[in-house]
């Protein structure tokens, strides 16, 4: 079966003509006695869309939080654009072009939509007082949401008033309309109906066509993931148990992988 897991991932050896934007090697993350990530290696190429599948508790969100600088790995190394880095903070990762839609969305219910869209990167009016430029935030938030096409009546509305799908749209718009080069989406479609999911997938498609944006998307819907992603990874119990180009695998094969214990898969070759 798959040999991907067995072979140690070389520190930096992307295929010719392909620019690698992200590489993690042997990432381990422990929370006390819990090992969330047990030596995960992954990479992402420029313009590529990587889909990560796996059960609840497999370590997917933890991996994402390490890539955003929100959590530091227990061990392992990260390279961004070929440069090895230890991400010091979320701002540090952001400065390197990494943006994220967290699974919990990281929205503040008591703040307006436009304040949420610019949280921690608020445009300021000039001058010594460094006041918030609320007008610019309102205008740009409105434009961003209109561009996606998701129906959100008024950017002055508190996020507390929005439906789950609308909240996800706000979180996605926030990440997309920053100057992200690497976009991480942790279950971005979880609370969305068919119409909203369609709009977001359209948006992702448009972004992909731009060519300079690379994405990692965590999802639950296998068919949908196979359709939109270029490559698929499966996480199980903090390890990568399967990795393949989306065109070379299928839903039945993925289901088969899930059914078997990762140890069986590893021992099979």
């Amino acid at each position: 079966m798959s040999q991907v897991q067995a072979a140690p991932v070389p520190a930096a050896a992307p295929a010719r003509g392909v620019t690698e934007v992200l590489r993690g090697v042997d990432i381990v993350k422990r929370f006390g006695a819990v090992t969330a990530l047990n030596g995960i290696s992954l990479h992402l190429n420029k313009g590529e869309m990587l889909g990560i599948l796996g059960d609840n508790g497999a370590g997917k969100s933890t991996m994402i939080k390490i890539l955003t600088g929100y959590q530091a790995p227990t061990s392992g190394t990260l390279a961004i654009n070929g440069q090895q880095v230890a991400l010091k903070s979320v701002d540090h990762a952001r400065a390197l072009g990494i943006e994220c839609v967290y699974q919990d969305l990281a929205l503040v219910p008591s703040l307006s939509i436009y304040h949420n869209m610019f949280l921690n990167r608020e445009p300021l009016r000039g001058g010594p007082l460094r006041l918030l430029d609320n007008g610019a935030m309102r205008r740009r938030a409105q434009e961003a949401l209109e561009d996606i096409g998701v129906n959100i009546p008024n950017v002055n509305e508190e996020v507390a008033m929005l439906s789950g799908g609308q909240r996800q749209a706000v979180a996605i718009a926030r990440a997309v309309y920053s100057k992200a080069k690497i976009l991480l989406l942790d279950e971005p479609l979880a609370a969305m109906g068919a119409r909203e999911s369609g709009l977001i997938l359209d948006l992702i498609d448009r972004l992909k066509k731009r060519g300079d944006l690379s994405l990692i998307m965590i999802a639950h819907n296998y068919a949908q993931t196979l359709e939109v992603c270029d490559r698929i990874m499966m996480f199980q119990h903090g390890e990568v148990t399967f990795e393949r180009a989306a065109a070379e695998t299928s839903v039945p094969e993925l289901l088969d992988v899930v059914k078997q214990n990762y140890k069986v898969i590893r021992g099979a070759h």
């Binding site: 939080k65 979320v90 701002d91 969305l105 929205l107």
Partner: peptide, 12 residues
């Protein structure tokens, strides 16, 4: 105050 974890995730 409104979302402690979310604020930290946003880099605040």
């Amino acid at each position: 105050g409104g979302n402690l974890i979310g604020s930290a995730e946003s880099g605040i």
